[in-house]
């Protein structure tokens, strides 16, 4: 019954048990995945308490919707990552709970640029995503990373990069198409 909690396949094994209402399986999933998901959410939401709130909502949703996980569409970890990202981005865009007009705004933006760059730097040398991102011009790559890793909108990315909004939009539209072509 005991298994190593670091096994990445754990989530795959735990979701069917969660779907059957096994609370201990949800506790197991929390043990394996919560730290990682809080970190993913915190890159987007910045504040630890908000990141934990997002992850809390994700686990409650998993409790109700574990049966909807479709292994043919991707990994269980990926499913959890997608749910966490979506929740965090919704909270960010909702905005009513976050004040981005205070004095810490600029500092926050600075942190985001660092996080985005560090995520890229940490990709494995031979990761197809890294290879395809490297094919984008530097400012375009930076815009894509800011949006994906730290959840910035096009407008926020424009402010961070001190570039016109129209330019950022065009860069990102073209970049996401090139990325998919390169990755396919």
């Amino acid at each position: 019954m005991l298994r190593l909690m670091s096994d990445p396949h754990d989530a795959e094994l735990l979701l069917p048990r969660i779907a059957k209402g096994e609370r201990s399986a949800l506790a197991g999933l929390f043990q394996v995945e919560s730290g990682r998901l809080v970190a993913v959410a915190q890159r987007i939401l910045r504040r630890r308490d908000l990141a934990e709130e997002a992850v809390q909502e994700v686990f409650v949703a998993v409790w109700h919707r574990a049966g909807q996980f479709d292994p043919l569409r991707g990994s269980a970890r990926g499913w959890l990552t997608t749910m966490t990202r979506n929740r965090a981005i919704n909270m960010l865009r909702d905005g009513s709970r976050m004040d981005y007009h205070d004095s810490t705004t600029l500092a926050d933006m600075g942190d985001r640029a660092v996080d985005a760059q560090e995520a890229f730097d940490a990709l494995a040398e031979r990761d197809a995503l890294r290879i395809c991102l490297e094919q984008l011009d530097e400012p375009r790559r930076r815009a894509v990373l800011l949006c994906y890793v730290t959840g910035l909108s096009h407008g926020e990315a424009a402010a961070t990069m001190q570039a016109p909004l129209g330019t950022i939009k065009a860069w990102i539209r073209r970049s996401v198409v090139s990325l998919q072509e390169c990755l396919s």
Partner: peptide, 8 residues
């Protein structure tokens, strides 16, 4: 793209 999330 989730390879980026995995670096956190």
């Amino acid at each position: 793209l989730q390879h980026l999330d995995d670096t956190a």
